[in-house]
């Protein structure tokens, strides 16, 4: 018995020692990552308990869109508390060594929690993203209908429909085989940007999602610059139609997170229930709002916020597109 207790206290000593050694920004992130994954580390234990409580709250009857604001604030609050807990541990470790805690601890507090958030998000993601999907289900359906209509257009017709300026049409990219007509070709223009945007749902980390968006934008500018033979930065009047083109052409390559990611069977049922048959990026509305709510607040007003807003406006615009009005499908 006593040996067991000794072993644990020795481990805590070791943990505190490690804390002191990993204070630099570069090693801190990977240290926190490991600590949060460990079942022995106090941070890992804390995260495990929070995750279990969160899952119990927001699965089953808790999977209700009205609970989204709470769930979302809760995850952010956890990231803040875990960071505070880490700082407390660090202070303890430093005190034990007879060293004064670093002075600049307080102003970096906000920054610290935005470092923690992406690390803890995977554990909360299934329930949280489910709530986002439920919240934006109706808009996502309208968006899907718009995408379906746009997907019927060949490339040239779509460029025309979206009012993309003629000098930005990548006609050279439309390579033809002998029995093809240029006017019928599909999925050939702005391919590099489209392929980039498709990756949006392959990660749960808001930082990585925003980075994918930035790369998509850069690919668009690269294509435009190639066409014009000069460095070209897209003004909004060009960017919006082009982004619209890319959003209409993007496809969900695979469903990620994979279905088994959603542990609870009931979730799988709900997910299969909607979004089926949609081309385009699935649940784009849910995606956009999740990114906006969980991104690092220092992004607000900046380039990445701007690009996310541009994507959101494409999403809104596509919902309004009705080329072939059907009979009234909304009876209520």
């Amino acid at each position: 018995f006593s040996r067991g207790a000794e072993e644990i206290s020795w481990k805590i000593e070791e943990i505190l020692e490690e804390l002191v050694q990993h204070q630099e920004p570069e090693s801190l992130q990977s240290y926190l990552e490991k600590a949060l994954e460990s079942s022995l580390h106090p941070l890992g234990k804390l995260l495990r308990a929070l995750t279990v409580a969160f899952q119990a709250t927001y699965s089953g009857i808790g999977a209700n869109r009205h609970l989204l604001p709470m769930a979302q604030e809760e995850v952010k609050f956890y990231s803040k508390k875990i960071w505070e807990f880490y700082q407390g541990l660090l202070r303890l470790a430093l005190e034990r060594k007879g060293r004064a805690p670093s002075v600049d601890a307080d102003p970096s507090l906000g920054k610290g929690s935005s470092l923690v958030l992406p690390l803890i998000l995977p554990g909360f993601y299934p329930e949280l993203s489910m709530l986002y999907m439920l919240q934006h289900q109706r808009e996502d359906e309208l968006y899907c209908q718009g995408i379906v209509e746009l997907s019927l257009f060949p490339d040239i017709q779509l460029l025309e429909f979206l009012d993309v300026q003629k000098h930005l049409w990548p006609l050279k990219d439309l390579t033809l085989t002998s029995n093809q007509r240029r006017s019928l070709i599909k999925d050939k223009c702005f391919l590099s940007a489209t392929e980039c945007l498709q990756k949006l749902i392959t990660t749960v980390d808001p930082r990585e999602k925003l980075e994918i968006l930035r790369k998509t934008y850069e690919e668009l500018e690269r294509t435009a610059s190639r066409l014009l033979g000069a460095d070209y930065r897209l003004p909004m009047d060009d960017l919006l139609p082009l982004l619209m083109f890319v959003v209409s052409r993007a496809k969900s390559v695979e469903f990620f997170p994979p279905l088994e990611y959603f542990r609870v069977e009931e979730f799988q049922g709900k997910l299969l229930g909607f979004g089926v048959g949609c081309v385009g990026i699935q649940h784009l509305g849910a995606e956009i709002h999740l990114i906006r709510d969980l991104m690092d607040p220092t992004n607000q007003g900046g380039m990445l916020d701007f690009l996310l807003t541009a994507l959101e406006s494409c999403y809104e615009h596509i919902q309004r597109i009705r080329l072939h009005p059907k009979e009234n499908s909304h009876s209520s």
Binding site: M236, Q300, G301, S313, E316
Partner: peptide
């Protein structure tokens, strides 16, 4: 200072509020 361009075309008019907020 972060300066956000907006699309001037009439058909994007309804999207304005998305850009103005904050």
């Amino acid at each position: 200072l972060a300066i956000w361009d907006t699309a001037g075309q009439e058909r994007f008019h309804a999207l304005g509020p998305i850009y103005y907020r904050d």
